[in-house]
Computed example of a mutant assay.
Amino acid sequence: MAAKTAADAKPKVSREDRFQQGVAALAAFVERGGHAKVPRSHKEPLEIVVTGPGGEVSIEVVSVGLGPKVSRADRFAQGLAGLAAFVEREGHVRVPRTHKEGGVSLGSWLNNQKARRDKLSPEQLGQLEALGVAWQVRSPSAPVWLAPPGPLACPRTVNELVRDCGGDAPA
């Protein structure tokens, strides 16, 4: 398949232009319908002026809308698939907060699953645990790492630190 030439390439639309298209589509909808309660699945046809790479001007009809709503179960499945791909490639579940995987903001998604673990079904919890997601919460008796893991690491509890350094143990 031959690469597209500059004349065949579709011009990129900036975020600002897409925003303006959305505002124009909303204005057209409000003018016609008398309200701004746009159904999620509604697409608004909108004529826009496009300047091509060679400077030629044309009018295109685009559809602006939100698209269908994705169910919570489908979003969970997408996140789980992204997490599985990440674990397969990286070998761990320590996903950086800003990491994206397959169109999913995986770091944020995983953080949200941990925050709402009480609302997850046992099946969802099991699927996450099978990939290596841990749910423990730090407590005063949990080990504190005084140095990065390695030959000099010294795991000690808060009570051991207080005892060895002098002072009162936390209540």
Rank of each mutant, 00 (worst) to 15 (best):
Q20L: 14
G22I: 13
A142P: 01
F29K: 08
L120A: 02
A6P: 04
R117F: 11
G167Y: 02
K10I: 09
G79S: 06
Q127G: 01
G82P: 00
H42F: 13
S105F: 13
S63F: 13
V162Q: 03
V50K: 09
P53T: 01
G167M: 08
R89D: 05
V133A: 02
P140E: 03
E47N: 08
A153T: 11
D8Q: 15
A77W: 05
S121H: 07
R163Y: 04
I48L: 06
E47G: 02
K100N: 08
S121P: 01
A9V: 05
A73D: 11
A24W: 08
P122M: 04
T157P: 10
L161H: 04
P11R: 08
N159D: 07
L146W: 09
A9S: 15
P68Y: 05
D74F: 02
D168G: 05
V133L: 06
F76I: 07
Q21P: 03
I48F: 09
H42R: 14
A9C: 14
G167W: 04
S14F: 15
L46P: 02
V61C: 14
R32I: 07
E101C: 05
G22Y: 00
Q124D: 14
P96M: 09
R32S: 10
G126T: 01
I59T: 15
G55Y: 00
R163E: 13
L66Y: 14
E31Q: 12
V133S: 00
P170I: 01
F86L: 01
A7V: 06
V137I: 02
L106I: 03
S63M: 14
